[in-house]
């Protein structure tokens, strides 16, 4: 006996028109439409997620991104601030995001 009325549980019909085509850049798992690399995105997301008014400390960034070197974090931070996604606050080691959502 099988009930035909119940839809299979595995079908996630979560379609997001227009958003799905962007992500397929080689092996880089997720690269949203904003044109940032995965590393730059991670840095940006961490800065975004920081609730403190003075923003996220570079030290915290470093502690949360073990897999990245200080140089590559700096590079990402440089890039992001050049693009205007983040800006430094109380000193050059604190960053906040401009991307209000």
């Amino acid at each position: 006996t099988k009930s035909a009325s119940q839809p299979p549980a595995g079908t996630a019909s979560f379609s997001n028109p227009g958003m799905n085509e962007v992500g397929n850049f080689g092996g880089n798992s997720f690269m949203p439409a904003n044109g940032l690399t995965a590393a730059q995105n991670q840095v940006l997301n961490l800065i975004k997620a920081c609730p403190r008014p003075e923003g996220l400390n570079f030290h915290d960034l470093k502690n949360q991104l073990h897999h990245m070197t200080v140089a590559s974090i700096k590079q990402a931070v440089d890039f992001l601030s050049n693009e205007g996604h983040i800006y430094s606050t109380v000193d050059d080691d604190h960053f906040k995001s401009t991307d209000a959502e």
């Binding site: 050049n82 205007g84 800006y87 401009t98």
Partner: peptide, 20 residues
């Protein structure tokens, strides 16, 4: 504080310039 606001304004300008 002024510095922060200036940085923020500058960053927003850069962002806006890119999004044009």
């Amino acid at each position: 504080l002024v510095r922060i606001q200036k940085n923020k304004a500058a960053a927003l300008l850069r962002l806006a310039a890119r999004n044009v």
